[in-house]
Simulated scan of single mutants.
Amino acid sequence: MTKPDAIAPLLNEHTWSLLRQAHADFHSEASEVYDEVLIEVSDRIRSSRSIGKADIGALLFWKRLRADTRWVRDLMALADSEVRDTTGHAVSAVNDAALDIASAAAEGRKALSALPGFVRGDALASALLTAAAPDRMAVYDRRAQSGLEKLGLSLSAARGRYGRYMAIVNGLASEAERRGHPWSPRQVDLALFALGGQKRIS
């Protein structure tokens, strides 16, 4: 495993080939409309500059997460205006050009932590932040974590994980661009998702 998880090291030829092939595999197998919900929600957020309960519900469906939980009931008990007030701060943070991507991610994630269901865990939170800033942020989930591990990259579950994840993703995007593949952070997370879902690596 690598050293600090806040900085993404360059990949060697073997690990780069794993990531590049995973990226190709995803795009050869996934539906062309895979991100339709994400794109639709992102368009609404761009107009409203906040994320409402209906948007969160759509992204919950897109990520195929359970909705029969206490935090969903608690979130639904809040006025949409209150939810939007909180998410508006997150939307502003991840789109703040004065902040580097990792810092913007950390600030956005911190803002969402005030809502029920967003105190711990980064899967749904990262989906919201990616919808809020699709050119800057990326989705984190268990498969992305597994993908990182298969590349020999370390990411701990300690507080502030999403900001550290985005530092790694940004480093991988820079590495891909250096190798002639100009991937966005979202393209990196799709490659990690595909790699993390592989049963075996040949």
Rank of each mutant, 00 (worst) to 15 (best):
D122Y: 15
L78I: 10
T69D: 04
A125M: 01
A98C: 08
R73E: 12
R84S: 07
E107K: 15
D100F: 10
R120N: 08
S113N: 07
W62A: 15
G117N: 01
L75A: 11
L112F: 11
A106C: 00
L60Y: 08
F118A: 06
D85N: 08
V72M: 07
S92I: 04
R73N: 11
L115F: 00
L112A: 06
D68C: 09
V94M: 01
G88Y: 01
G117Y: 06
T69A: 09
S103Q: 10
D74Y: 04
S81M: 00
V83D: 07
E82T: 14
V119R: 14
R109H: 12
V91W: 00
A79R: 14
K110F: 12
D68A: 13
R66G: 13
K110G: 10
L112E: 01
L124P: 14
V119Q: 12
A77I: 07
V72S: 02
L78A: 11
A98W: 09
V91H: 03
E107V: 13
A114Q: 10
K63Y: 05
G108M: 02
R70Q: 15
R66A: 14
K110Q: 12
L65I: 14
T69R: 14
F118G: 03
A67H: 09
A98Y: 08
L75H: 08
R73P: 05
A125F: 07
G121F: 01
R66T: 13
A79K: 14
A102Q: 09
V91D: 01
A105M: 06
A111Y: 04
A98H: 15
W62H: 14
A125W: 05
G108Q: 01
A90K: 01
F61A: 07
T87F: 09
D80K: 11
P116F: 00
A123T: 15
R120W: 10
R70C: 09
W71M: 04
P116H: 02
A106H: 06
G88K: 05
N95C: 13
D100G: 13
R70T: 15
K110C: 09
V94I: 04
V119C: 02
D96C: 04
D80A: 11
F61W: 13
L124E: 08
R120Y: 12
D96V: 03
F118W: 04
L60V: 11
A97T: 10
L112S: 03
M76F: 10
F61I: 07
W62G: 15
D122C: 06
A93Y: 08
S103E: 11
R70V: 12
V94L: 02
G117A: 03
A114W: 00
W71P: 06
A97F: 00
W62S: 14
R84D: 08
G117E: 01
F118S: 06
G108R: 01
A106Q: 04
D80W: 06
T87L: 00
T86V: 15
A98F: 07
L75G: 11
M76K: 08
A125D: 05
L115W: 00
G108C: 05
E82C: 03
R84Q: 13
A105Q: 04
A90S: 05
S103A: 15
D122P: 06
V119A: 11
L78H: 09
D68S: 14
L78Q: 11
T86Y: 00
L78G: 13
T86S: 09
A123G: 09
T87R: 02
D100T: 10
S92D: 12
A106P: 02
S113K: 12
K63H: 02
A106K: 03
T69H: 08
A104F: 11
A105T: 07
